[in-house]
């Protein structure tokens, strides 16, 4: 599956906004810390990673993923794409 990264970036930002039903006051961009800013909780992370896998057609490699409070759309997508 070919991934249009720019379009996917925009879609993922919109996904996070939509998950928060536009109620969060935090700005969302590619580098916004999703956990530390309260944009995603554990359930949101499950949903987001599942969405990433579906959209990229690649499995998320949990064996090499070290989670941290700074996880962002960019770091999660890059990890999913193996970059």
């Amino acid at each position: 599956m070919t991934v249009d990264t720019e379009a996917l970036h925009a879609e993922l930002i919109e996904w996070v906004r939509s998950w928060n039903e536009d109620e969060s006051t935090a700005e969302v961009d590619l580098d916004t810390p999703l956990l530390a800013n309260g944009l995603l909780d554990s359930m949101g992370m499950v949903a987001f990673v599942s969405h990433l896998e579906e959209r990229t057609g690649k499995p998320f490699d949990f064996s090499t993923y070290m989670p941290g409070p700074t996880a962002s759309i960019r770091t999660l997508l890059d990890h999913c794409l193996g970059r």
Binding site: L35, G68, A71
Partner: peptide, 13 residues
């Protein structure tokens, strides 16, 4: 538990 949501480091912090 919580391995996706920041892991042990975030919890302990």
């Amino acid at each position: 538990l919580n391995q996706l949501s920041g892991g042990m480091r975030r919890l302990l912090d």
